[in-house]
Design a protein around this nucleic acid. Sequence first.
DNA 1: AATACCCACAACCGCATCTTT
DNA 2: CAAAGATGCGGTTGTGGGTAT
Length: 249
Amino acid sequence: MENTKGRKKGAWIYEEDKLLKACINKYGEGKWHLVPQRAGLNRCRKSCRLRWLNYLSPNIKRESFAEDEIDMILRLHKLLGNRWSLIAGRLPGRTSNDVKNYWHTNLLKKVVSKKEEKKEKEKPKETMKMHEVIKPRPLTLSSNFGKHYFVKQQNCNVPIDCDDDTETARVPNQIANCASSNSQPSLGNIPIPFEMWSDSLWNFGEEVGSEIIGSCSSLQEKNFNMKFPNVDDSFWDFNLCDFNSLWDI
DNA sequence: AATACCCACAACCGCATCTTT
DNA sequence: CAAAGATGCGGTTGTGGGTAT
C-alpha cells in the first residue's frame, strides 16, 4: 500500500524497524522530517515518528496495565478529559496511544455503565421532596486582616488573597500548594494543567496586565463570607463539583 | 471446519499549535 | 507580522488473533 506521494503505508516489517532504530540511535529523536531520508525508509515522517514513539522506543512498557495505573487513568481522565498525552505523561512507560486504546476498549464501557447506574440511582422518586442545594463558598475568614487584595502572583499566575501589611498570602483551598511554592497547583501528585486553573478556574480578574485584579474591602467585620469578584454560580457548579468528586469514582 | 463476532492495538488522517524564515 | 514548514495530538480506521456459534 502506498500513499499519493509513493510512500509506503500499513504495517511495518522487521527490516524497517531495524532501519528506524539504527537511525534514532545514531541521530537521536527529533528532526522527524529528516528521518526517512537518514534511515533509508520509504515512509513519511509522521509514520516514522509514530512507529518510534508508540512501539520501538525502549522506554515503552509492554506489559498490561496494573491496577494502580488503571486507577490513575480513571482519575486523570475525570480531571483532564481526553487529553491522552497529559495522562500518559503521568504513567511512566505508557504512550498516549496505549492509554487511549485501553480507555476505548476497557474503561469507556465501565465508566458509561457506572454513570448510567448513578443516574438511575439519582432519579428523583415521586415521593421524594425537592431539596434546596446549598452552593459551597470558598472561604470564611476572621476579621483582623485589614485591607485585602486579589493579586495575580508573578510566577504562579494565580490570584491570591493578600494582606497588605504582612505580605502573607491566603489562597483558596484547592491551590494552596501552588501559592506557597510558586509552582503548578496539584491534587495529590497530579498537577492541575495550567489552562484549567488559570483560565477557567481562577481567571476572574478583568485587568490581566495589572498586579491587582480585584479587591475586597468588606473584611472589617468579624466572620464574613468572602465573595470573589465576577464569579457567578456556574463557577461553583462547574469547578467545585468537579474537584470534589474527583476522588469519588 | 467454517463463519461471525469481538477485542486489542497499530497505524493513518486531519487539525491545531509551535517554530522558523 | 505573515507564511510556510515541522511537530504533536486526538479521533478514527484497519487488521490480526481469539472465541463463540
